[in-house]
Structures are given as C-alpha cells and as structure tokens.
Design a protein around this nucleic acid. Sequence first.
DNA 1: AGTAAAGTCTACTAATTTTGTATACTTAAA
DNA 2: TTTAAGTATACAAAATTAGTAGACTTTACT
Lengths: 142, 142
Amino acid sequence: MLSQKAKYALQALSYLASHYKEGRPVLIQEISERKRIPLKFLQGILLELKNEDILMSYRGRSGGYMLSHPPKEITLARIIRIIDGPIALLSCVSMNFYEACENCDENTCRINPVMAEARDAILKVLEKRTIKDIIEDGTPLH
Amino acid sequence: MLSQKAKYALQALSYLASHYKEGRPVLIQEISERKRIPLKFLQGILLELKNEDILMSYRGRSGGYMLSHPPKEITLARIIRIIDGPIALLSCVSMNFYEACENCDENTCRINPVMAEARDAILKVLEKRTIKDIIEDGTPLH
DNA sequence: AGTAAAGTCTACTAATTTTGTATACTTAAA
DNA sequence: TTTAAGTATACAAAATTAGTAGACTTTACT
C-alpha cells in the first residue's frame, strides 16, 4: 500500500495538473483546503516534489506551486519513488533501490524471479501512466 | 514493499514445500536455522499460516509443520494477504480489504481507475504464481 | 509414569516509521 | 514597509513492525 503521504502527493498533483494550463502558481493553502490535506504536512510534500524537479515554486506574495513539466511527462512511478521509495515488493528486485537480501543467495533463490515478474507487471502500468491520467474532473484520459 | 514478516513467511514456505513430498513434519527450529529466521518470530508466523489453513501442525515430540495443501494450490497472493493484508496500492481499489477514501468521491476520482489497473497487473502475477514456483533448489518451474 | 521435546498462548518491549506540528526565517509583490 | 507567500529545522505523538519472555499443552519415547 502507498503511504498516506504518497496519496496526498497524488491528490495534490491531480489538482495542480488541472490548473496547469492557467500558467500561474497555486497556493498550498488552496490545495490543502480543496483536497483536505493538513497544511503543514502538504508543505513538506510539495517541497520534496520541488527538490526533485516535479514542481516549481514562487516565493513571496502571490507565490505558490506549479508543475515544472507537462502532466503527461511525469509518470506515477516517478512520484511514488520520490515519496515512498521502492515500488518492487522486495528490495532485492528493486530497479532504483536495490539491496541484497541477507541470508539469501540470489543465484538460487526462487522467490526473486517471481517478485521480479510482479515488479515488471506493476511498473508496466506505473511507468506508462502519468499525471495526465489522474487530472481531476472530466478531462479525457488521453 | 512486503514486510520482513511476509518475506520470512515466503522463505519458510519455500523450505517447507521442498520437503512436502517427504510427508512428515518439519521442525520450526530447523526452518529457523536454515533460513536464519528468529525462532520466536517464526513461531508466530507459522501459527498464523496454520490458522488460515495453509499449514498443518503436529504437536508434541516429533511434531512440526507441513503444508496442508499441495504447493501448486497455494497462491502467493493468498500468503501475502494473510501476512501483510492488501496487495493493492490504495485501499479504495483493494479486492479483499476495501475501504473508501475519506475526502474523495470515488465516482469522479481519476486516481482510482489507474490504481485499479495497477492492482490487476500485479494480481495477475501473484494469483497465478504459487508456492510451487518458489520451491527452493533446482526444482523445475512447472 | 515420567520426562523431554515439540507446538500454543498471552503478554510484553524495543525500534522504526509514519503522520503530523511548532517556530523562526526568507522572499517578493502591493 | 507591510503582508502574504514559501523554506528550514527541529520536534512530538501515534501507529506499526519486529522481536522476546515465559508459562502452558500435547505427545512420543523410555
């Protein structure tokens, strides 16, 4: 399961994407109210996404956040990795957060290849689907 | 990611499956040593699997654990659900542990259908793959 | 019958992660 | 120069995960 934080991130991005074409920043406060995400918590999430170049921010009065790339260029896999880390079920089959198992020989382990298969299956979806696919409201899927 | 507990469970089942044909129970202690799983922790895990009819136990001297069904009849999805709960990324798309999101209208939410797609992809693997597929050693895949 | 070796049950505890909050600081438009 | 925005650092509470302790029950073997 995704963490609450990742869920908030997706909800916030869904909202930001729906305002992407307006070309002006959206207040954290506004997102917080509309999506009912605790303000201070959301601040941290958006900052993290900014540091990973998903969002850009404007400081000072009339500041706020915007997507720093078109929605269709940001995959869900990327977001989930930033917020929650590995997508794979075991770190020994993670593409981006690989860690060897202790007490397990990867050459003979039979769990490993099955989990790699599961990872491929889920990545096929999460690397195809983008923020564009989760824009809120009645926007078409593609 | 799966919990450590779920990983232990799969490793223990992998070992138990490799002894399935012998038709006699395997000691918790033996699994604990071979797979380097803390004994007391493993006891709890195996008990849980027994209560869900994955394993059967014999008490008393020369007791131990055995699979209560042929390895090919136990899916990985079933094991993971017993130990870790939902497989889906969000509970609002979980088949077995459904919970509605707060603050989100499922009829208009655009995150939901994408997560359902991801769930279907991973379940396709985890409901097809069984304990037989993870039997340790050089046993053939099918 | 007694003992030793196995699983079972209940109740903890320690560590880690998650989900936040508080407060002071920086920036920039009005 | 004030005010409304994001930024940074440091906490703190709650929940979950990982693991332990110890008494109890069951059963084979002597």
